[in-house]
Design a protein around this nucleic acid. Structure first.
Lengths: 336, 336
DNA sequence: GCGTTTTCTGAAAGCGCTTACATAGTATAG
DNA sequence: CTATACTATGTAAGCGCTTTCAGAAAACGC
């Protein structure tokens, strides 16, 4: 057995002080004589002492940890968000505990992240049910929602993006600049809030230009390459006529590319394509994808800061909506 | 203040037993009468009781958590690895604590992951220095290395992939099938082990076909799109002649694509390009990228299982090398 | 100088669990 | 029917910290 790690008592003994004093030096919670503090610090260094996180948590009732709940950790969309969360968390001096809800086996622990192991939670759309969210709210546990409005209009802060206006702008671009009239819209997963807003934007754009909404042009892309591809193939098979596709998000746009290419339809000559998010790969597709830039990294970062403020007991704005921005590339027909 | 969460004592009282019995029901560490156990379980359900992780850790000296140390969490390369690690961790019944070493601010905690908050560590190349690795080894703390051999030939288990033979195979494909003679090799980041092995494979392939190694064809791509692009542009500017590029990895291959395209060189007609890893985007590039499939997800999963075995005190193989596989697409000139 | 505040330090009580150890009851063996 | 062995449960001692409380020492005010 290896020599067990030094405890605060070892440090105290070596420095000739009580453990309370060591704790004070460690946390700066009370004035300590300069020389004493120095002795403690050198004892810490000599022993290679690191405080035991669990003991600390138990005694102080703080975990110094923020929990992040999301559907999946891989997936290009979550990369910038994770980067933002990570940066925010480390700036704010917390640790990060990540939990993904997809692909969880049956025997999953009942409540993997919560008051027992984090000080606060970041919750992405669909990764925690309304019941648990309500429970957390009623016990006053700090939560910040990402890309999702609170259920039952609870007063839980939200960070999200301008979905509707972004979608409207890009659809209007297709209409105004490229004279598209029959624009397919691929919805996101069932009940996905981002998708709902984007569809509203899509409809508003049509309306603003006197185009009637055609339900046969709307189908599910599920924000997913393969599903979008299958949907697209089906539409082609069904002989649905269209001159543009607003894919809902960039992942779906890739599926659209694949389906159209296979069917021999040229982008953008035969069909203009637009995405949403501006994920990393968007610019390297051929043709480069016209899309809406979502400040996903900033969402992550802002959410953490908002949560951090909540944890300090400060007041925080209940809703943060970050602006999106049109990114014109080639797939719509510009610079074709 | 919200009503504080129930403790084991509350459960014990409600079930009319001692806290020890509750603990036994919770952990199954000793026989408990069926009926008593049932009473305890319903008390737990009624109170919505969840054991306090920190208290548990403190008392049992186990964290049930595995730590993962890597340079960055975003980046397409790490996605499959994370997926594998995640899956493995949840299969093995552990929690996952992730820590990234890049972009850490100055005031970073001295040792964010270690014996004090995890039972064992998964360490990706370059994310922990030899000194700390040695320290962990000497105190007998379980560690599994990913894509990296242990320093000072310590006996630390490793999970990695067949870099050398994979690289050799793809370079030989360029030589044998496409008759390439002047093949550029873009190295990974300074000191990156994967890169070292790939370079060896590159040299072996040349040698096996009687081609002499030309140092002017080797430059740094850093496994990074932008850096590879810049390097490539410089080579074009310098007038270096070549008929193929083995980009080191897929990210660098994208940079190569961009640089070549801008310079008006066609892929694969003028220059054949090959990558390594077979990241998600490889098949959707135009032309589709010929590369070497690295079983990155499997690496993550296997590493966790290896670590889990170590944690159980079982013996584990000291080195796991997963096979790579040639993936021929269009960028080399096949099915052009 | 003497009371009063301020600064520093230590003793000790938990935080919510796990886990020897002890004990009582119940089988099983001879 | 007594000796032996389980089985089921409780008691209590920590795990390594933080934090309250109190006290000693030093500094201050007048």
């Amino acid at each position: 057995m290896p020599p067990s790690r030094p405890t605060i008592a070892d440090v105290a003994q070596r420095a000739g002080v009580s453990i309370a004093t060591v704790s004070r030096v460690l946390n700066g919670t009370a004035p300590v004589d300069t020389e004493t503090a120095e002795r403690v610090r050198s004892a810490i260094a000599a022993l290679n002492y690191v405080p035991h996180a669990a003991a600390r948590t138990l005694a102080s009732r703080r975990t110094d940890t923020i929990g992040l709940l999301l559907p999946e950790i891989s997936g290009a969309f979550f990369q910038p968000m994770l980067r933002g969360v990570e940066a925010g968390v480390s700036e704010a001096g917390f640790d990060l505990l990540i939990h993904t809800t997809q692909s969880r086996p049956e025997n999953a622990p009942r409540r993997p992240l919560g008051e027992h192991n984090t000080d606060g939670l970041l919750v992405f759309t669909e990764s925690l049910d309304a019941k648990e969210l309500t429970r957390l709210y009623t016990i006053g546990f700090p939560v910040v929602l990402l890309h999702q409005a609170p259920p039952n209009s609870l007063n839980i802060p939200v960070v999200t993006i301008e979905n509707q206006s972004g979608a409207q702008k890009i659809v209007e671009h297709l209409i105004e600049v490229h004279n598209c009239h029959r624009i397919v819209f691929l919805q996101g997963p069932e009940g996905h809030e981002d998708s709902t807003w984007r569809e509203k934007g899509y409809r508003l754009a049509l309306k603003a230009h006197g185009l009637t909404f055609d339900p046969s042009l709307v189908a599910r892309g599920a924000f997913n390459r393969d599903e979008a591809r299958a949907t697209m193939e089906q539409m082609l098979l069904d002989g649905v006529e269209f001159d543009a596709v607003f894919a809902g998000d960039d992942d779906a746009a890739v599926g659209v590319y694949l389906a159209l290419r296979q069917a021999g339809r040229r982008i953008p000559e035969d069909v203009a394509v637009a995405g949403f998010d501006d994920q990393v790969f968007a610019s390297t597709l051929t043709p480069a994808l016209t899309t809406v830039r979502a400040p996903t990294e900033q969402v992550g970062r802002d959410a953490v800061h908002l949560l951090a403020r909540l944890l300090k007991g400060e007041q925080a704005e209940p809703r943060l909506v970050l602006p999106t921005e049109l990114v014109i590339r080639e797939s719509c027909g510009c610079r074709g």
